[in-house]
Amino acid sequence: MKKYPEILLFCVLLTGCSSETISDRLYTQSIGLTCDGSLSFYAENFNQEISPPVEGISIAEVLRQEEAQNGGKVFIGHTELLCLDGTCTLNPAEELLFEKGLSPACKVLYARPEEYFQNADHASLIHIIRMSEQNGLLSSTELATALSEWHGIWETALLPVQKPGRNMPGLVLLHKDGNCTDLSEAAAQGMYWLRRNTGSFTMTLQTPGGEQDIFIRNCRIEKQAEQQELYYHVIVRTGTPELNSILQNLIETQCQKAIQEMFLAKADVIGMQDLLEKSGIHPEKNMTVKIHLSVTVQ
């Protein structure tokens, strides 16, 4: 009983000594990874201060070097953007997600990190990507989704990319081995309708009477599989019924474009593998799959 005050005092003192303070950490907003022989790590904090890249053979080593360089523990729990150039995709990203605390909602951008961080406007890109997703211009792409797609049979993920000379990002299909296929604008928009997206927004349609705005309440997709024939039914609810037919045609065109370009790139970013497994088929990389597309605008 008499020793309790001493033990308590010891614990109180320990609380000051043993752990770093909140300001000792380097809170990164964007990070980049590239593997040219060795792993290179780029980091930028929330004050847009970019630290010089460090190299190492593993994530643990590059983080250690970054900490030594900056004099503070690297904290990636709030990182909003991961920049990958296709040279290293899977293992470092998985390690960052499951062991180092990277958020699964972190956006993954296809770009060379050194070019990305040198671009003066790169800081706004994160916000542009986010707003584009909210406004139906870009399909949602997150780290967890990308990793899941890379682990599929077709080993390809859908990532945003910064197009030169354009503010709006585009989409690419990035294979696990680094091969990359650009998607056209129509295909990129088609991906929005075909992937799991929620939210409402207003878009502008080209009509015979000129440009008109249409309010999209929500969009959902119903999928079915019968053997190797897959049925995708896109259902869109709008607030402007008189423009529904025009919208329907547009969505059909965009979705068909997206599917076409996806097939050309031998990719699956619309959940074909899950559908095939659900119907009892073990998917293979070179198997022939037929997609029946239908669109309903209500």
């Binding site: 729990g77 958020s103 699964p104």
Partner: peptide, 13 residues
Amino acid sequence: TLTALSQPLQGQR
């Protein structure tokens, strides 16, 4: 793994 992947809020883990 599920707790790591399922985050109710986007900005935080």
